[in-house]
């Protein structure tokens, strides 16, 4: 069966090269057809628009009878993708896998996952909470991450070389961070604590300052 696996993967790579319409790109990492890098553009009308996302692809031994292993190489702010490791929570990469699915169709599914996040089945609980609390604030952060990490368009034009703003990165308000920093806490710690508490949108009113200080003292 080993040659069938190779034949299939080679065909999939070739198909992807020939297909210009889907804008899905697959290339080899370290010359093995079983370790690939897929990439696609962030879908329009989403906070990911304009970004260029790389995905690490590992073809398992028993492919296509076992799902491919995929994770984001590009950092992305999305409820179903780990903001730290890039691990993806998507049913077709697990039990809903079918041998007829291909690398291309899977990457397209990933692309559409960016259009329709499922915060109720999250990979990254903090991001999902952010999404559910304030979608506008979440989108702003996601857009910012797209700009910083995925080369997306920034408000100020060129994103390259721009100093990363930790506060925007965490999807927080500068005023809130400044408020607690002025109490004498380290800025990094304040950002961490506020992120953990999901200090955003309507939640700000629900969390009193004592709770924040308690978290900061932990």
């Amino acid at each position: 069966m080993a040659d069938a696996r190779l034949r299939r993967v080679n065909k999939e790579i070739a198909d992807c090269k020939n297909d210009k319409s889907s804008h899905i790109n697959i290339e080899l990492i370290d010359n093995s057809p079983f370790h690939l890098k897929g990439s696609f553009k962030g879908p329009e009308d989403t906070p990911y628009a304009g970004g260029h996302f790389d995905v690490d692809i590992v073809i398992p031994e028993s492919y296509p009878f076992q799902p491919v292993k995929m994770k984001f190489l590009t950092k992305i702010y999305h409820p179903n993708v780990s903001s730290a490791s890039g691990a993806i929570c998507l049913d077709i990469l697990k039990d809903a896998w079918s041998p007829v699915l291909t690398l291309k169709s899977t990457l397209i599914s990933l692309q559409s996952l960016l259009c329709s996040p499922e915060p109720n089945d999250p990979q990254d609980a903090e991001v999902a909470k952010h999404y559910l609390t304030s979608k506008a604030s979440f989108e702003e952060t996601a857009r910012y991450w797209t700009m910083v990490y995925a080369g997306g368009p920034g408000k100020t034009g060129s994103a390259a070389g721009q100093k990363q703003d930790e506060v925007a990165m965490a999807g927080l308000e500068k005023a809130h961070v400044d408020q607690f920093e002025s109490l004498g806490f380290e800025r990094g710690k304040v950002i961490d604590a506020l992120r953990r508490l999901n200090y955003r949108g309507a939640n700000v009113a629900k969390i009193n300052d004592d709770r924040v200080v308690e978290e900061l003292l932990k």
Partner: peptide
């Protein structure tokens, strides 16, 4: 077998 085009198994591409 289907006459028009040669059948290819979609799994192993044979």
């Amino acid at each position: 077998p289907p006459v028009e085009e040669p059948y290819m198994c979609p799994i192993c591409c044979d």
